[in-house]
Measured scan of single mutants.
Amino acid sequence: AEEIWQQSVIGDYLARFKNDRVKALKAMEMTWNNMEKKEKLMWIKKAAED
C-alpha cells in the first residue's frame, strides 16, 4: 500500500524538492508515518484490488 501511495505522490514530492530524490523520499516516509489509519486504509484497499 505504501508503494502505491508513493508512486502516486512521488512527482509532487520531487517537484517540491527540486528533484532531490533523497529529501523527497525522506519527506514521503515521514508523511506516510504521520498519516491517519483511515487515510492509509484507502491505499491498502487500492493495493488489494491490484
Rank of each mutant, 00 (worst) to 15 (best):
E3G: 08
E36K: 07
A24Y: 01
A24G: 02
K37P: 15
M28R: 00
I44W: 06
A15W: 08
K38H: 14
A27M: 08
D20M: 03
N33P: 02
K38G: 12
T31Y: 14
K23I: 08
K38R: 09
I44Y: 12
A15M: 13
A27W: 06
K37H: 15
K46A: 10
I44P: 02
E49P: 05
G11S: 12
K38L: 10
Y13L: 03
M28V: 02
F17N: 05
N19D: 10
K23H: 06
L41P: 01
M42A: 09
A24K: 00
M35Q: 01
K26T: 07
A15G: 08
T31G: 07
M42Q: 13
D20E: 04
E39D: 10
Y13A: 02
N34G: 08
A27H: 07
K37R: 13
E29P: 00
K45A: 15
M28A: 03
V9W: 02
E3Q: 13
F17Q: 01
Y13K: 00
N19W: 08
K18R: 11
D20G: 01
Q7V: 08
K40G: 01
L14S: 02
A1E: 04
D50P: 07
E49Y: 08
E39S: 03
K37M: 15
E29C: 07
E36M: 03
V9P: 01
R16Y: 08
I10W: 09
A24E: 00
V22I: 13
K45D: 09
I4E: 03
I4W: 10
E2M: 15
A15S: 10
K38F: 12
E29L: 11
W5S: 00
L41T: 05
R16N: 06
Y13C: 03
L14D: 02
N19K: 05
K38Q: 12
D50T: 14
D12K: 09
A27K: 03
A24L: 03
D12S: 13
M42E: 13
A15K: 12
N34D: 07
K23D: 05
W32R: 00
V22P: 06
E2V: 11
M28P: 00
L25C: 09
I44D: 05
L25H: 07
M28N: 00
S8P: 00
M35V: 01
K18T: 07
K26F: 09
I4S: 06
A15V: 12
L25M: 13
A48V: 09
I10H: 03
W5G: 00
A27D: 04
G11T: 13
E36P: 15
L41R: 05
V9T: 03
R16S: 06
F17R: 01
L41F: 07
L14V: 03
S8K: 05
T31K: 08
W43C: 02
E29Y: 07
W43L: 03
A48Q: 14
K40D: 01
A47N: 05
K18P: 06
A15R: 13
E2C: 12
K37S: 15
Q7D: 09
L25G: 05
V9D: 01
E49D: 10
K37C: 15
K46H: 06
S8R: 05
E3M: 14
W43V: 02
N33C: 08
S8N: 07
K40E: 02
A27P: 00
N19G: 14
D12L: 09
A1I: 04
K18G: 12
A27N: 05
K46I: 11
W32D: 00
W32I: 00
M42T: 08
M28L: 05
T31A: 15
